[in-house]
Every structure is written in C-alpha cells, then in structure tokens.
Amino acid sequence: MILDSHCHAWRRWPYDPPVPDPDTRGSVEQLLFEMDVHEVERAALVCARIGEGAFANEDNNEYAAQAAQRHPDRIAVIADVDCSWRPEHHTPGAAGRLRETAERLGITGFTHYVRATNDGWFRSEEGREFFAAAAELDLVASLAVAPAWQADLRAIAREFPTLPILVHHLGGVSARRPSFESDLAEVLTSAREPNMLVKVSGFHYHSARGWDFAYDDARPVFERLFAAYGPHRLCWGSDFPASRHFLTYTQSLEVVRSYADFLAKEDLELVLGGTLARVLETRRPVPVPSP
C-alpha cells in the first residue's frame, strides 16, 4: 500500500516561468495519472491558493474538494487556511475561517504555511484558538514551518495531544543553510512530542543541488529523522507537480523505496503508506510502539 502525504493540484499552473500547457500541467487528472502509474492508492492533496493574474488559484480549496467528491477513495483534501501568501495570514478570526472551511468543504485537514521568521503567532491567543478548533474538528494539521518555529510547535503539540501534526519536507531543514545542524537539532527534539510527524518529502529542497538525484546529502537527514521518529511517524510524499522542475514522480518515490537501505521491509511499508493511512482514517496521532 502506497499513499502520498504531500502533493498538489491546480486548475491553472501557478509558477514562473510560464508553461505551454498551464491548464493541464498541474491538474488533478495529471496527479491521478501519476498515482495510477505508480500504484499509489490515495493522496493527501495539499491546497495552495497561489498564482497571480490569469494564473491565480483563489479557488484551489474548492477545486480539490470537487476532485475528492469525484474520487473519494483517492483524494483527501488538506485545505489552504490562512497560509503566508494570503492577506488574512495571522490576522484576527483564524479559528472562524478554519471552521467555515471545514464545514463548507468537508475537508480531512488543513495546511498552514508560515514565513521563515517566527512571529510568535502560534503562542498567541489567536493561534491557540486556531489549533484548538483544529483539534475539536478532528482535522489533520499539515504545516510548512521553518526550524525557528519548532519550539512553539512543540508547545502546541503538548497542549493539543489529539491533533496529528505533519511537518513538511524533512522538517524544513536545508543543507544550503549555515544553520543546518542547529536546525536539524530542533526538528529532532520535536520527536519527543508523540503527535508530531514528519513528511519524507522535498529531498530536492534540502539538497545543495536540487537536481542531483538520489540526493546523497539529504538521505542521511532522513536516516537521522528515522532514528528519532521511527516509521510510525514518517510519511512519504512526492511534492508533485511542484517537484517536476527537479525530479520525476518515480524518482520522488524511489529515493525512499530503493535508496534508503537502513529501512527494514516493515519500516518501508509504514513510511510509504501505512502510517498516513492510519492518520487519515482515525484523524488521530499514530500510537508509538513501546521499545
């Protein structure tokens, strides 16, 4: 069983430079095609209401929800709520906007991208109300946070222990930053919180050379995350189609399936799908087995 914890789809391709096929390159149909080819049963579709002008995707939450209605066994909607590119980002009323989105679209979870600099919002009354609403609504939290946010995120995890928190792309650490070791230390420290999980995705963002498959400088980070979190709190993700500039869907899968030689067969099965399947099914953190 393979499940994709992190992918996207857009009605219009949102990125520069312009492409010759903007109406299809990032479509749900393209995603489903890749899933079929690679025998991926289900995907958590992380919405991103991005793009400008004729290529804006203001309706990305609705686009994903419509796809989930057509393919309820294939697509789980992770709605964009107050992400950093939104004008309402970290303004009053976040909890209400989350509730409205969840009730209107029937989402599985939400994504919340923040800026690199920690503005303290997670620890604010507004931030705590936001995550309290997420826990009450039985949503999955899919968060794009830089390591500077990890300490505050640990506080949220402790306050709302029933909320599963999935941190994007190897915890947001990068070999390109001088702060790499201290950044990674923050992400590893967060393994103490049993409801925090990490997406095994975005190797191309971590690597000093994003095109250099099979990411020899990123796989050791995966191994250190595995040692800290274990397979029950790691979830593979493709980052398709945003990743297309760097690697294929096949490569996003094989960097884990074929190159992570430290994973036993049962570990690999959990990372590639078993862990995410349980989180999506229960909307609860995965119990960590006793040693």
Rank of each mutant, 00 (worst) to 15 (best):
A242H: 13
Q251V: 12
E254A: 14
L270N: 04
D217P: 00
Y249S: 10
F222T: 01
V271R: 05
D261H: 01
V255Q: 03
D267S: 14
G274T: 09
P241F: 00
V256W: 02
L263V: 00
T250L: 14
R224Q: 13
F240E: 00
F246Q: 05
A260R: 04
V221N: 00
S238V: 08
S258E: 15
D217E: 09
P231W: 06
V271E: 02
A218P: 01
L263G: 08
F222K: 02
L272P: 08
A218V: 06
R257S: 15
F262E: 06
L268M: 13
L253F: 13
A218I: 07
E269L: 13
S258M: 11
L253S: 09
G274Q: 00
E223L: 11
T250K: 15
Y249D: 02
A242Q: 13
D267R: 08
L234T: 00
D267A: 12
H245G: 10
F240Q: 03
S252K: 05
R244A: 15
R244T: 15
G273D: 03
D267Q: 12
V221S: 01
H232Q: 10
E266F: 06
L234V: 03
T248E: 06
R244D: 15
S243K: 09
W236R: 05
R219H: 06
R233I: 04
L253I: 15
Y249C: 08
S258T: 14
V255N: 01
S258L: 14
G237N: 07
L247F: 10
A227E: 15
S252I: 04
K265Y: 12
R257Q: 15
L225C: 04
A264T: 14
E254S: 15
G230R: 03
G274C: 06
D267Y: 10
V221I: 13
A228F: 11
A260N: 06
W236H: 01
T250F: 13
E269N: 14
Q251I: 11
L263E: 01
V221D: 03
Y229F: 04
L225E: 07
P220A: 11
P231E: 02
D267V: 06
R224P: 04
V271A: 05
E266H: 11
V256F: 09
W236C: 00
G273Q: 09
D216E: 14
S243L: 10
E254G: 04
T248Y: 07
C235K: 02
L272I: 07
H245Q: 15
R219T: 13
K265C: 11
V221T: 06
D216K: 10
S243G: 09
L247C: 11
H232C: 06
